[in-house]
Simulated scan of single mutants.
Amino acid sequence: MNGYSLKGGFVYLEETGAYSCKDLYIDSGEFSADTPYGAQEIDISGKFVYPGFVDSHAHLIGTGRKSLEVDLEAAALSNRLPIG
């Protein structure tokens, strides 16, 4: 048995749109709510589980705001209007 049992973490439940304190079993990329006997337990009490994140260190508000900005980095300087 190669799996891990994450104990006591807050898991996002898509069907309710809320977090719930749950245990989560992971083995070979598969997730389950049922933990088999003998699985290695990891206490994640008070921590959140975010499925689908590869790099969970992203400031989500800033990341979302970036999509609202216009990137002018590639704008040619020759297109400037004369001043004065």
Rank of each mutant, 00 (worst) to 15 (best):
N2F: 02
L6R: 04
K7H: 01
K7N: 05
G9D: 01
G9A: 11
F10A: 02
F10K: 13
F10Q: 10
Y12E: 03
L13T: 06
E15F: 03
E15D: 15
T16A: 01
T16P: 12
T16F: 00
C21Q: 12
C21V: 04
C21I: 03
K22F: 00
D23C: 08
D23Q: 11
D27Y: 01
S28M: 12
S28K: 14
G29D: 13
E30P: 00
F31P: 02
S32T: 10
D34A: 09
T35V: 15
T35C: 15
Y37F: 00
Y37W: 00
G38R: 14
A39R: 15
Q40I: 06
Q40A: 07
Q40T: 10
E41F: 01
I42L: 14
I42C: 05
I42H: 02
D43K: 13
I44T: 05
S45P: 11
G46W: 02
G46Q: 02
K47E: 07
K47G: 10
V49Q: 01
V49K: 03
Y50V: 14
Y50L: 15
P51E: 00
P51R: 04
G52Q: 04
G52L: 05
V54W: 06
V54F: 08
S56P: 12
S56D: 04
S56W: 05
H57Q: 06
A58D: 11
A58L: 11
H59Q: 07
H59W: 06
I61W: 04
I61G: 09
G62I: 03
G62P: 08
T63S: 11
T63A: 11
T63P: 01
G64R: 03
S67Q: 10
L68T: 10
L68E: 09
D71K: 09
L72D: 13
E73I: 04
A75L: 06
A75P: 00
A75I: 08
A76V: 04
L77C: 06
S78R: 13
N79E: 10
N79A: 09
R80Y: 07
L81W: 07
L81I: 02
P82A: 12
